[in-house]
């Protein structure tokens, strides 16, 4: 096993591309976490975004429309989650898990019943138009190309950080999660902040999904989110809702996945497929152990 193959440029590029899905979804989840209603249904939102994006792109022959479809689906999803959790005070955990199963079933159903295909979407006429990719020339024998979504994702990470820590609105969002009554007592509705977070989450997660079906891969496949949504949630917990640390965690995840792909030459691919998931669990264990020692002597049993 040559370390050079693992730490190569193409691995780096793969890392960046893979992690983009997770980073966008994580940003969405992060918003709801700041607002105190952390959404674990983001896996479902990703699938919905993937489906809507692929459909929109195919139907209208343009990737822009694909994104529009995905974002519209995102608004609906975010609204759905928001209404159930905020207005009807449902348990966000149950709604999240149920929503993931719902989205999986719904998109599969629509593919099979409405479109008449199963497994994967293979348009007989037209195609799923992909999101443009920036070609940045060659380095050695690797073609360096990154999707514009990657750049958008990085920009959003920074924007989120600035929003949360440098603008009053970010403080309101945080207050609505940490101590909603304090916000209410100065005349601002925490519920509105939460709706804002829900919608934002929907938009960001469906954007991630759109990139999945229109960029990272080139069509919609049933269940294509492959639990990446849960990985994103783990990254948010790991990063304690700080966009920069969460970003780091998603890159770590992406790296493990990319390295795994690289190792498929000499390790069975189904085995390397487990690496990102094992890595995520190890990440969480590491975080928990560090927290424990930082708290020092645990006084309460």
């Amino acid at each position: 096993m040559n370390l050079g193959t693992i730490f190569s440029l193409s691995t780096l590029l793969n890392t960046v591309n893979t992690s983009t899905i997770v980073i966008l979804a994580a940003l969405g989840c992060l918003m709801t976490d700041q607002a105190g209603i952390m959404c674990i249904g983001i896996d479902g939102m990703i699938i919905i975004g993937a489906f809507a994006g692929a459909m929109g792109s195919w139907l209208c022959g343009s990737w822009v429309m694909g994104l529009v479809f995905a974002l519209a689906a995102g608004l609906l999803s975010g609204l759905f989650y928001g209404v159930l959790v905020i207005r009807y005070h449902s348990d966000e955990f149950i709604i999240g898990v149920a929503f993931n199963l719902f989205a999986q079933a719904l998109t599969t159903f629509l593919l099979r019943t409405l479109i008449g295909q199963s497994g994967s979407f293979h348009p007989t006429t037209g195609e799923v138009v992909k999101i443009p990719v920036l070609q940045l020339g060659r380095v050695g024998d690797t073609q360096v190309q990154i999707s514009i979504m990657v750049l958008l994702a990085w920009f959003l990470v920074l924007a989120m950080w600035v929003f949360l820590y440098k603008t009053p609105q970010g403080f309101w969002l945080h207050a609505s999660g940490e101590h909603p009554e304090s916000l209410r007592s100065v005349g601002r509705s925490p519920e509105k902040q939460r709706y804002f977070a829900s919608l934002g989450c929907g938009l960001l997660c469906t954007l991630a999904g759109a990139y999945l079906s229109m960029g990272y891969l080139s069509t919609f496949t049933e269940n294509m989110s492959a639990s990446k949504g849960y990985v994103a949630v783990a990254c948010v917990i790991f990063g304690r809702s700080n966009p920069l640390i969460v970003f780091f965690a998603t890159l770590l995840f992406g790296f493990i996945e990319a390295a795994g792909l690289r190792m498929q030459g000499f390790i069975d691919p189904t085995l390397t497929a487990t690496f990102p998931y094992v890595g995520t669990i190890l990440m969480m264990v590491f975080l928990a152990l560090r927290q424990r020692t930082r708290r020092g002597h645990r006084a309460a049993k």
């Binding site: 403080f171 945080h174 207050a175 940490e178 101590h179 009554e181 304090s182 007592s185 100065v186």
Partner: peptide, 10 residues
């Protein structure tokens, strides 16, 4: 208020 309306981390 009796239970303060302050955000602890601010």
């Amino acid at each position: 208020h009796q239970h303060f309306m302050l955000v602890p981390s601010f």
